[in-house]
């Protein structure tokens, strides 16, 4: 397999090129300037966050004591977590199906899978609002105990996340050498074993990229969540949206900082747990 060729020294060792390193530095700097500003301002005493007035941890205390904000964050993380798992599994299955099989109306089917990506968010939000209301799912689910009352939102998030996973995983699968699969079967592995030992490891970078994309989409979605949430199921973006219309308070910056720290730790942990498997394929 390709990535077994370790990038050694020589013409392909792009990782050590100075110009690429500089370019990298500049890009990451651009990406992070606003974030650093945001984190810095979470320690600011100025209420409107326009000028720097002094260091404080009060904003964190305030955010911590704001039960509504904490609840919204918990909801968001819960939704993003579950929606990511479901959409990664479903998305990967669809990608495998599209990659492996030939079937009638395949082009139409692919277009159909692309729909959630194509449609304006607000349109999908309103469509789901109509749907949940007309089928009674809104009333029934919103009244359930936590976390079941998040089901509507999770369903909606999966619906727009998994096609993204599918498209990313599929573009990874295109380069798969089917001979590997055949070799595996020739050597006596069952279909199932071949799937787990050969195809899944090959898909892994696609799966990771797809899952990250799904998590990002779910965690950040405002429009669709707004239309599918009830009074008991407010998420962080919905909360933030109603709050910042009167200016971003440092409290929100503090909460965002906490959220980012939590998600980073969770991701690093997940990557650590997954590490032994990864080392196997180089």
């Amino acid at each position: 397999m390709a990535d077994q060729l370790k990038p050694g020294s020589g013409p392909l060792d792009y990782g050590n090129r100075l110009w690429l390193k500089i370019l990298f530095g500049v890009m990451y700097f651009m990406l992070y300037v606003p974030i650093i500003t945001l984190i810095a301002f979470s320690f600011n005493t100025d209420k409107r966050g326009v000028v720097w007035r002094g260091f404080t941890l009060d904003n964190y205390a305030k955010a911590w004591n704001n039960s509504a904000l904490i609840e919204a964050m918990t909801n968001s993380l819960m939704i993003a977590f579950i929606a990511t798992i479901i959409s990664t599994v479903i998305g990967a299955m669809v990608a495998l199906m599209l990659w492996r099989f030939r079937f009638p109306f395949k082009g139409a089917y692919e277009a159909f899978m692309g729909l959630p990506i194509v449609i304006p968010e607000i349109c999908m939000g309103v469509a789901l609002l109509l749907f949940f209301n007309e089928t009674g799912m809104m009333g029934a689910i919103v009244a359930m105990p936590w976390p079941l009352n998040l089901a509507n939102i999770i369903i909606a998030h999966v619906a727009f996340c998994f096609p993204f996973v599918a498209i990313v995983v599929r573009s990874r699968l295109v380069g798969f050498n089917r001979q590997l699969e055949e070799a595996s079967k020739d050597l006596g592995a069952s279909e199932w074993q071949t799937f787990w030992k050969v195809i899944v490891p090959f898909m892994m970078p696609g799966l990771v990229a797809g899952a990250l994309l799904a998590f990002t989409l779910s965690l950040d979605d405002f429009v669709i969540t707004f239309f599918t949430s009830g009074p008991e199921t407010v998420t962080f973006p919905v909360k933030v949206y109603s709050l910042v219309r009167r200016g971003v308070s440092p409290e929100i910056n503090a909460a965002s900082t906490v959220l980012i720290v939590i998600t980073v730790m969770a991701t690093i942990l997940a990557m650590k747990l997954q590490a032994p498997e990864k080392s196997g394929k180089g």
Partner: peptide, 11 residues
């Protein structure tokens, strides 16, 4: 208005 138009989710 948009939120309540489709039905009251519990407000």
């Amino acid at each position: 208005f948009a939120k309540l138009k489709g039905g009251n989710p519990g407000y």
